[in-house]
Design a protein around this nucleic acid. Structure first.
Lengths: 194, 194
DNA sequence: CGCGTGATTGAAACCCTTCAAGTTTAGTGG
DNA sequence: CCACTAAACTTGAAGGGTTTCAATCACGCG
């Protein structure tokens, strides 16, 4: 058992060492090099990835070959195609490494197994899901109501650390605009600061 | 206990009559007339609403006074501001009735209480949450990658019944476009069919 | 009937995209 | 450590999709 996920679950979800022992067979460890795929379109997703170090992203490629980034996951975040995982369907998405990344791969039933033996984790799991819903709802709200500039400002407010680590064109893709547009938005913003 | 939620939980989540008895104090029944509010911006949301009959919508109003619809909920759907409910914060949203609507109002702890006494419901609750995430992810994906026309086509594919029940300007608001744009999109579509 | 709400249509404006070119940055091999 | 190259970022001009504003039309309801 890795130290980090261990610590994370003990601190945040009140999971005990003994409980972690019981389900240790549902874990694998891996590293992905920058650019390496954790999931490809068409595959069924069999794991939830917990990022110990590094950065993963989930994205689709449309019929014009353009990438659309659904989610980033850096340290202490879970990422997965829950659609594919939970409903056992081929994924529409890719997941790959933006940086060299160390992950823990959790089996499909890791969460339910841990839920069965730990009521505290059960609540924590619900917290994770509710939080995910909240975040997605926020994003939908921004996408239907806010300009490119407002969305960018929200992004840097929410994920200030990612700005340093993610190339600008990926942020543009996450925001649903072109790299050129983001460049111009940033130019405007520095202008107004002076 | 209303017949409909009762039946729903028994059929979909394997909940027993006895279990339903135990938590019957966490339920209230209400009707909302068309236009009546179930939740206003600034209030803390204390319930999850299960729609037995009718149609609710959740939306925000921006600084220009424009409405942005986050979600519709018709028969057999749950709706709530989970952000406000789960994290006990004032809501950014309104929920009101698009049609006269009969609902069951579930207390904040209804779901966790039922989860504690029914492992089957626990899994069903997780299913609901996962499904919600899947739906929201899909919507984010459409919003960052698809044109107004494509988003509208997706809407009528997913919610064919709502087309009949929801005024066009609300659909536009849900899609993140103006009523005028939606009108033009529809005009184009009928043209191409001929 | 007349009023209000929702839907449509047109013209101009605006935001963002596209395409193309140029500049900067980062990584690689000599 | 420099030279080279590819990738990322910037900038400009033209175009497209969507919005805005205003006017008109359609419909249901008191």
């Amino acid at each position: 058992m890795t130290q980090k996920l261990n610590t994370y679950l003990k601190e945040n979800a009140g999971v005990t060492d003994q409980q972690l022992e019981e389900i240790s067979d549902k874990l694998q460890f891996r590293t992905f090099q920058k650019g390496e795929f954790a999931l490809r379109e068409g595959q069924v997703c069999h794991h939830i990835f917990y990022v110990e170090e590094g950065l993963l992203r989930q994205y689709s490629i449309d019929h014009l070959g353009k990438e659309h980034i659904i989610q980033f996951a850096n340290e202490r975040w879970f990422i997965s195609d829950r659609s594919s995982l939970f409903f056992n369907q081929p994924s529409d998405f890719f997941i790959d490494a933006v940086e060299d990344t160390k992950v823990v791969m959790l089996d499909t039933d890791f969460f339910s197994a841990l839920s069965d033996i730990s009521p505290q984790f059960r609540r924590y799991n619900e917290y994770i899901l509710q939080n995910h819903i909240r975040q997605l709802q926020n994003r939908v709200h921004l996408l239907i109501s806010a300009s490119a500039e407002a969305r960018y400002l929200d992004f840097i407010r929410l994920y200030p650390d990612l700005i340093q680590r993610v190339p600008q064109w990926m942020i543009a893709s996450y925001l649903g605009i072109t790299p050129e547009s983001l460049s111009r938005v940033r130019k405007e913003l520095t202008k107004n600061k002076e």
